[in-house]
Amino acid sequence: MLPAVPDPLQRPPMGFDIRAFATHRFGGHGGRLGITYHDHGEDWAELALPYAPDLVGDPERGVLASGPIITLMDMATSLAVWSKRDRWVPHATLDLRIDYLRPATPGRTVIGRGECYRLTRAISFVRGQAHDGDPEDPIAHVAGTYMNTEVQP
C-alpha cells in the first residue's frame, strides 16, 4: 500500500510545475516502466515504480533488475534539481552511484526519493534513497552529479 499522495495544488506556486511536468513528460523509458509522480518539496521529489514481472532481473527470486531502480532514481533526482532551481534546465548525468542495501521485495511498489543538496552554476549534486514501503528500511542509496548544459563552466 502506498501512503496517500498529498495534493500538490495545496502547495505554494513554483516556477517549475513538477506535477504538470510529471503528467505530460513521462514518456520513453520512464513511461514504459510505469513510473509516476508521488510527492515533492522545495529540493526533493518522490516517484513511484510499480512492480511488474517484466522488470525482473533475477527470475529465481522475482527481484527487480537494477536498471528500473536507476531509471527511477535518475528521474527523481533530476526532478529534485529542477525543483531546487525552480525551473527546468537541460542537464546531463555525469555519474550516478547506487548501493543496493537489500533486494526489493517482489510485488511491492518502489518509492524513489531524490534530493538536490547543492547547486553551482554548472553542477547539481544529488542523493537519494529508494524503499518499498518503509522509508526507514531502504533498498538502495544513490549519489550523483548532473551538468547544467546551458551554461559554460
Binding site: 523509458h29 520512464g30 537494477s66 528500473p68 535518475d74
Partner: peptide, 25 residues
C-alpha cells in the same frame, strides 16, 4: 526504440545503465 528513450532523441540514462548491468551479468 521509444521504450528506452529519455529526453527526445536520446537514450535514457537508466536504460543505458540497465544495458551495462546486463553486460556485466
Amino acid at each position: 526504440a521509444d521504450d528506452v528513450v529519455g529526453r527526445p532523441g536520446f537514450l535514457h540514462g537508466g536504460a543505458i545503465s540497465g544495458l551495462l548491468e546486463m553486460a556485466a551479468i
